[in-house]
Simulated assay, not measured.
Amino acid sequence: MNERVILAALKEIEIHSLRFRMIDLTHRLHISKTSLYKIVESKDQLIYEIINYLMNNFNQKEKSIRNADLPVKQKIISFVCLYTEAFKRFDKNIYADLRTDYSSEWHRWSIFREKKINVLMDILQEGIQKHEFRKVNLDVMHQCLLVTSEALSQYIFLKKSNLTYSEALKHLSDIIFFGLENK
């Protein structure tokens, strides 16, 4: 897939959510509709490719974090920052559109999110083994992260709170890593 098309589509998504029109994309790219459809078969395929692009970029950056010679706490903070930064474009409307109009992509995204929580759990386990963190029940932590990440992506919550998913995750990571105690 042509990265130029994906980046242009991401710009359209920022403006119109997933309700952007392919004709708008052709205008942004300064190409004809025929030329666009030679590159991408349909809008459904484009959405699929965009999700792939975002996940692949994330996976490359994640790999460098995991392989870095950093304290585990720094790895976790870097990982959470990567996650919130990588998906900051995904606001409440995009999640709602993805869930309702592109359910197979929503399913892929949900599986991806669960895998990333598993990566975070591996990093936490590493921190416990290296005695950088105290021993906690990782099963409870895993379930909390799974349920919370799903709950934070709910359109009703995001709309009521006037947050993007990324902003909600930043607040969650602040609570998890810095607690509630006023220092």
Results as ranks from 00 to 15, higher is better:
residue 51 I to F: 09
residue 65 I to S: 03
residue 24 D to T: 12
residue 171 H to R: 15
residue 147 V to C: 13
residue 165 Y to T: 01
residue 78 S to R: 10
residue 106 W to C: 13
residue 181 E to L: 12
residue 49 E to Q: 14
residue 94 I to P: 01
residue 54 L to I: 10
residue 71 P to T: 06
residue 8 A to E: 03
residue 102 Y to L: 09
residue 183 K to L: 15
residue 9 A to N: 05
residue 12 E to N: 13
residue 38 K to G: 09
residue 143 Q to L: 14
residue 182 N to D: 12
residue 33 K to L: 08
residue 168 A to D: 00
residue 54 L to Q: 09
residue 67 N to T: 09
residue 164 T to M: 04
residue 8 A to G: 07
residue 39 I to V: 11
residue 30 H to M: 07
residue 83 Y to K: 05
residue 167 E to F: 04
residue 146 L to G: 01
residue 138 L to Q: 07
residue 119 V to P: 00
residue 87 F to P: 02
residue 152 L to I: 11
residue 63 K to H: 09
residue 97 D to G: 05
residue 108 R to M: 08
residue 86 A to G: 07
residue 66 R to F: 14
residue 148 T to K: 05
residue 136 V to K: 10
residue 161 S to A: 15
residue 70 L to K: 12
residue 130 K to M: 11
residue 53 Y to A: 01
residue 180 L to N: 11
residue 25 L to G: 01
residue 138 L to R: 07
residue 25 L to V: 08
residue 176 I to D: 00
residue 81 C to A: 12
residue 116 K to Q: 15
residue 4 R to E: 12
residue 171 H to I: 13
residue 111 I to K: 10
residue 80 V to G: 03
residue 118 N to D: 14
residue 28 R to H: 04
residue 104 S to L: 12
residue 64 S to L: 14
residue 129 Q to S: 12
residue 124 L to V: 11
residue 67 N to Q: 14
residue 19 R to M: 07
residue 36 L to D: 09
residue 12 E to W: 05
residue 157 F to A: 02
residue 27 H to C: 06
residue 130 K to R: 15
residue 86 A to S: 14
residue 182 N to L: 12
residue 50 I to N: 01
residue 67 N to D: 15
residue 90 F to P: 00
residue 105 E to S: 15
residue 90 F to V: 01
residue 106 W to N: 13
residue 125 Q to A: 11
residue 156 I to Q: 12
residue 89 R to L: 11
residue 65 I to C: 07
residue 3 E to S: 13
residue 110 S to L: 14
residue 18 L to T: 03
residue 142 H to C: 02
residue 33 K to Y: 04
residue 106 W to T: 08
residue 32 S to N: 10
residue 87 F to M: 05
residue 83 Y to R: 05
residue 13 I to H: 01
residue 160 K to C: 13
residue 24 D to Y: 13
residue 172 L to D: 04
residue 136 V to P: 01
residue 99 R to G: 03
residue 128 I to R: 02
residue 77 I to V: 14
residue 7 L to G: 05
residue 63 K to A: 11
residue 46 L to V: 08
residue 55 M to Q: 14
residue 64 S to C: 10
residue 52 N to G: 06
residue 125 Q to H: 12
residue 62 E to R: 08
residue 144 C to W: 06
residue 172 L to H: 08
residue 106 W to G: 04
residue 143 Q to A: 12
residue 78 S to L: 08
residue 137 N to C: 05
residue 174 D to V: 10
residue 22 M to A: 12
residue 64 S to T: 15
residue 119 V to A: 02
residue 88 K to S: 12
residue 29 L to M: 07
residue 102 Y to K: 08
residue 168 A to K: 00
residue 170 K to L: 10
residue 71 P to C: 06
residue 25 L to R: 02
residue 21 R to W: 07
residue 152 L to P: 04
residue 59 N to Y: 00
residue 147 V to D: 12
residue 57 N to V: 00
residue 76 I to T: 02
residue 92 K to S: 10
residue 24 D to C: 06
residue 112 F to K: 03
residue 68 A to M: 07
residue 33 K to N: 13
residue 66 R to A: 11
residue 20 F to I: 07
residue 115 K to H: 10
residue 40 V to D: 01
residue 12 E to K: 12
residue 123 I to Y: 01
residue 178 F to M: 09
residue 116 K to M: 08
residue 156 I to H: 05
residue 69 D to G: 02
residue 31 I to P: 01
residue 176 I to F: 09
residue 41 E to M: 08
residue 130 K to V: 04
residue 56 N to C: 02
residue 103 S to M: 10
